[in-house]
Write a protein that binds this DNA or RNA. Structure first.
Lengths: 191, 191
DNA sequence: TGTGTCAATTGACACTGTGTCAAGTTAACC
DNA sequence: GGTTAACTTGACACAGTGTCAATTGACACA
């Protein structure tokens, strides 16, 4: 039966996430196997490659987080400016939850990993675009921006690398990240 | 004599920069040796490790660029706001010149490479801090920022990852990067 | 009671890239 | 002619990924 199969697969994913949260990035297939309590080769019975596993791990974490529920606040916003603020809150709450796994994916430098990362970032960009369009609908996008360039800007502002820098290098709290990011986005984009 | 030595060393560095500019990041020691016209082992007679070579390559490029000359405009600025603008121009002109080499250093994930990158970023932060302090001296730093948090923000805004995203993912020209970055920094930080 | 299936195990192995080591070559310099 | 230093050649250790083949053990079905 495949229920045993699915179970092992989940155990591998859980072990992967656990290890990544502890050691960030530098986790080997052998470590994961050990943590799961199976042989290294057994991991390859469930995932074709390390990247495949990492991609599955990010999806696995996403599923637990119920992103749609988290996004309702932003989607229900009644002004563009509010939508922008709620989206930044969503994102600021989300990053810490996926950071370790996402980071590992980013560090894996093969093409499949890059493509998977690209996909995630494209999805995030859609959220930025929606916020920018809500601003435009209100006539609140400030001078000098097109929908495109404003989306580019917001999207870039919210890059994981910026969060990483502000949290780990600058020592900001996550709340500071969210609050100040809202201020920045507001000042840059809102009329 | 060591002049032959120095000469070979320079040829290695030139070959390294050339290859990194062409193929970005994925350049092996053997490739560099081949491009230089020497054996792979000879490279190790001049550089103790790949990271050592990459660090030397960034310095090598820096030396050619005469950073002090490029920075005089910013340092001579007569207002905080102008200093900020000139610094962003300096940085925006600088990144394209070192991007490929810096990127390779960033991709090398050992500790020495991380430390070298950290140093470069710390130097860039000093420039940000100077601009922020010039703003403060003019009484022009906008509400809500301390010298520290404003420096954090500007520093983060100017991260290479943001340039990379805007140029390669969003398709901005370098001039657009500079102009819009000035607008952003101004709106965020200047009263 | 056997038979087939499927997950998992074990151990060997190919491959890539870094870095090391030892012995030998080449050329310049005295 | 002999010394020195840069360089060459080829072999090798090491880490980590991914592959392969033979085997074990459990469970299901008949």
């Amino acid at each position: 039966m495949s229920s045993e199969n699915v179970d092992t697969r989940s155990r591998i994913l859980e072990a992967t996430v656990r290890l990544l949260d502890q050691h960030g990035g530098l986790v080997r297939m052998g470590d994961i196997a050990k943590e799961t309590g199976i042989s290294r080769q057994a991991v390859y019975l469930h995932f074709t490659s390390r990247t495949d596993l990492l991609v599955a791990a990010t999806r696995f974490v996403d599923e637990k987080l119920d992103l749609n529920a988290r996004l309702t606040q932003s989607r229900a916003a009644r002004s563009g400016s509010e939508r922008l603020a709620r989206y930044i809150e969503f994102w600021g709450d989300y990053i810490p939850d996926i950071y370790d796994v996402a980071k590992a994916l980013l560090l894996a430098k093969d093409k499949a990993a890059a493509a998977a990362w690209h996909d995630r970032m494209a999805a995030m960009r859609d959220g930025c675009r929606a916020a920018v369009e809500a601003l435009i609908a209100d006539g609140d996008l400030s001078e000098g921006w097109t929908a495109q360039s404003a989306t580019d800007t917001l999207w870039t502002l919210l890059q994981v690398g910026n969060w990483e820098n502000l949290i780990f290098e600058c020592g900001w709290s996550n709340q500071q990240y969210i609050d100040r990011m809202k201020v920045m986005a507001e000042r840059i984009l809102v009329k």
